[in-house]
Design a protein around this nucleic acid. Structure first.
Length: 269
DNA sequence: ATGGTCGATCTTCGA
């Protein structure tokens, strides 16, 4: 069987319900992981999302910021929210697919929204950047102790780790998301955690890959000053099942778009 | 040299 998992920073799930519906119709993933739902739990549009054909939904939200959700065609055997940096700020959820899921049963799916880190790349003067580095350090420690079982890690990791994950490596070396302290941390925690960067496994450098284009560029498509901030990783043992990774760049051109586009990983199990 | 644009929100913050 195929297992398709899509990740998308939606930047307000309530504002972009129609875009979610369109993406689900076009991509038809088995699982959709959303970040930046920006929606308090009591206002989460649960029944509307379920009506798109995804009866199994788990989410954590808060007022105004952050928030992650997982929508699935397959039932969950287990749902595990986790607090990071001792904050209850809705940046991670994981699920384990249930025994009804055929060959996908038992696969764990992690949905992360790593802090963006503010504007100044100095933890001494910018508490947001300090938080981001702490979050990445905690992910590294977690990965080192993680039970080695089939797993998929997706999300807006807010780091573009490689030279060709940004439009200009030299011009972005001091820009938050591409500084060496971030990119080295992310690559280290990925390797130590036993994760394969699925997008780069299938599309090696120097091919450019972008998943985010700033709202602040009026002609974002022509300028094409993008970054690869959204990632799909699979555990080593699933590496042989990797079939494709698709970046749905056209979604950036939709009416009232998110600044991020969906990224889909397909496994043949 | 510092803006540019979004989204949620109580007029500013986070991205």
């Amino acid at each position: 069987m195929q297992l398709k998992v899509t990740t998308w920073n939606i930047n307000s799930v309530r504002l972009r319900l129609a875009q979610v519906e369109r993406a689900l119709a076009e991509i038809r993933p088995d699982v959709l992981c959303l970040q930046e739902t920006k929606c308090p739990n009591e206002h989460f549009p649960l029944s509307a999302l379920q009506a798109f054909g995804y009866p199994h939904v788990t989410q954590v939200g808060m007022k105004g910021y952050n928030g992650v959700a997982i929508l699935s065609r397959h039932p969950f055997a287990q749902v595990e929210p986790r607090a990071w940096c001792e904050r209850d700020d809705a940046r991670h959820l994981s699920v384990t697919l249930g025994p009804e899921s055929g060959p996908a049963a038992g696969i764990q799916i992690h949905n992360f929204y790593v802090p963006a880190g503010g504007d100044v790349a100095d933890p001494a003067v910018n508490p947001k950047f300090k938080h981001k580095l702490q979050f990445l350090d905690e992910m590294r420690a977690w990965g080192g102790t993680r039970e080695r079982r089939p797993a998929i890690l997706v999300g807006d990791l807010n780091v573009a780790p490689l030279e060709h994950d940004v439009w200009s490596h030299k011009q972005l070396l001091d820009v938050v998301s591409h500084t060496p302290v971030e990119t080295e941390r992310l690559e280290t925690l990925r390797r130590e955690g036993g994760w394969v960067d699925a997008a780069r496994h299938l599309t090696p450098e120097p091919q450019k890959i972008y998943t985010w284009w700033s709202y602040r560029s009026p002609d974002w498509a022509a300028a094409n000053k993008g970054r690869r901030l959204d990632h799909v990783w699979v555990s080593d043992d699933l590496g042989g099942t990797l079939q494709s990774v698709d970046v749905h760049g056209s979604a950036r051109g939709w009416t009232r778009p998110s600044d991020h586009v969906p990224v889909t990983v397909t496994l043949e199990l």
